[in-house]
């Protein structure tokens, strides 16, 4: 990558309205844009900047802001700069546009995100179950899903009762419920 390429990329990206660019280092560029502008950005990158590769789409649940963050990781073999495009989508109703028409592999990523976060992608070819075929609970990677609680409600544990424990119980001892339950309260 040379500085000319980098500069022309910058100029090109300015065509998108409201884009915020942060050069994290020489080979990483972060672009924060509004959700509406993302398809235009991707089309621009794919069509005019040689960004043929969508490496991944990742999702972050910002439950306090009531938003999902979607990060599109894009790679160009010409510029060797990794661009990550960040958008925020409202958690409720949790619907966004598919970019399948621009990048075909997006279908898998979107299907995965739909399964794990419950975010629906309109226009994606297949939103059916992907990996969690046996799962009918809430999307498990949402922050409001309490995995430990779910496990406690749905599974049983070994109920060990070895001889040494029986002996101790006979003497009046036994398993202490939780670490802090043994603390004295005033």
């Amino acid at each position: 990558m040379n500085s000319a390429q980098s500069q022309s990329l910058n100029v090109l990206l300015q065509e998108i309205e409201g884009i915020q660019l942060t050069h994290q280092n020489q080979r990483r560029l972060r672009a924060d844009i509004s959700a509406d502008a993302l398809p235009a950005l991707l089309a621009l990158l794919r069509g005019r900047a040689g960004y043929v590769h969508l490496s991944a789409i990742s999702c972050v649940d910002w439950i306090e802001d009531d938003q999902f963050e979607l990060v599109y990781h894009l790679w160009s073999y010409e510029t060797s700069i990794l661009i990550s495009a960040h958008i925020r989508v409202a958690r409720d109703p949790g619907i966004y546009l598919s970019v399948f028409d621009i990048y075909t592999p997006a279908a898998f990523f979107e299907r995965d995100i739909h399964e794990m976060f419950g975010l629906y992608f309109e226009g994606s070819p297949d939103m059916s179950k992907f990996i969690l075929t046996e799962w009918d609970g809430p999307p498990p990677m949402r922050k409001d899903f309490d995995s430990e609680q779910w496990v406690m409600d749905n599974f049983t544990w070994q109920d060990y009762h070895p001889d040494w424990l029986k002996q101790i119980e006979q003497q009046g001892g036994g398993v202490v419920k939780s670490a802090d339950s043994s603390r004295k309260s005033s």
Binding site: G137, F145, S147, W150, V151, F155, W157, Q158
Partner: peptide, 19 residues
């Protein structure tokens, strides 16, 4: 396979094989 091991909190794994 006995009692969930380090994945005891996981929603995706079975806990006791003998069940």
């Amino acid at each position: 396979t006995v009692n969930g091991g380090m994945y005891w909190q996981s929603y995706a794994t079975a806990k006791k094989l003998d069940e």
